[in-house]
Design a protein around this nucleic acid. Sequence first.
DNA 1: CACAAATCATTGGCCGACCAAGCAATCGGC
DNA 2: GCCGATTGCTTGGTCGGCCAATGATTTGTG
Lengths: 178, 178
Amino acid sequence: MTDAPDDAPGPCAAETTGVAEAADAPCADGAAGARLCPGGEGQVSHAIARVARAHRITAGNLLRRLGLYAGQELLMMRLWEAGPQRQSELIKLLGLDPSTVTRMVQRLEQAGLVTREPCAADRRAVIVATTEAGEALRKEVGQVWQELEERTLAGLGDDDRSELARLLAHLEDNLTGC
Amino acid sequence: MTDAPDDAPGPCAAETTGVAEAADAPCADGAAGARLCPGGEGQVSHAIARVARAHRITAGNLLRRLGLYAGQELLMMRLWEAGPQRQSELIKLLGLDPSTVTRMVQRLEQAGLVTREPCAADRRAVIVATTEAGEALRKEVGQVWQELEERTLAGLGDDDRSELARLLAHLEDNLTGC
DNA sequence: CACAAATCATTGGCCGACCAAGCAATCGGC
DNA sequence: GCCGATTGCTTGGTCGGCCAATGATTTGTG
């Protein structure tokens, strides 16, 4: 029902909104996302969603140059820090779904960054380890994360940064602690 | 090359880490993700990534009960606020890729929440509008977002909240401003 | 020892999100 | 009026994520 008697004062009429609309050519990062309610008011959730997306996109753009996709770097970091380990460890420590890790590891293997060999002691398990090529990325990924960190925190003083860290930790506890 | 001569001191040995590991049955939200470097140090990026994921998962769990997937609610909100509009408007205002919006709208149409009718004045365009069923979700989605907002900000005073809003806005500018 | 229960990993299905290509229609300048 | 940009949307492919179901192993218990 509601055969759309149309109403719509003029849906087609509005062409170019003419607002802002500038983040195109100048930077290759793309993806802006308009701020819905500029009046800071409530809606921290909206802000989180937008920041998260922008952050992920930025990270993705930086990582792409290394041949990685957003998310993969976290797995590699675990491997670099803790050495070869079984997939279930990665799943637990990254807090991801098993299937996500399975496929991510498969792709990383296909990219030549990790190896997957069956564990001798437990024939169910799979041991994941970095290859030479994977190890070689360690430094560059570190730089990328530093770059990302700087870009994210630009213009914030030390007090603001620690405040931010405190608040984020609180949010995380709120959201993961059930 | 690198036939993995290695050895692996004992990767298989480590069974259950025995740490924490509690967020399972008590709450249905799942997905925790271990904190890598507890020492607050740098790594705000890690914190952002974790908070974002937890936030999205929480939102997804709340929205699923309404038959929505995370992300779709933003599109519906635009529709509720601004009424029927062409897809390109949604794309611009949500800051998403055209293909993302196309498929999302298709799925929403398939779910009976929106309609897609060709625009008479511009035969390239498609006008998206909410259906009765879509309109009916408005209140519930509002409640879900409020619930999400509360859950996210639990335990924070007004000053902390405004501080957080300020910092997030700053981060957003940093990351989207190119 | 045998059999049920928990663990490990994989596959299939689905979404959001991206890029790259492509087609249709409109808008421009000439 | 015509032919090249530009805009609007769609499709195909890829990834990160999730859930659900399945098949191997281990482990635990009677």
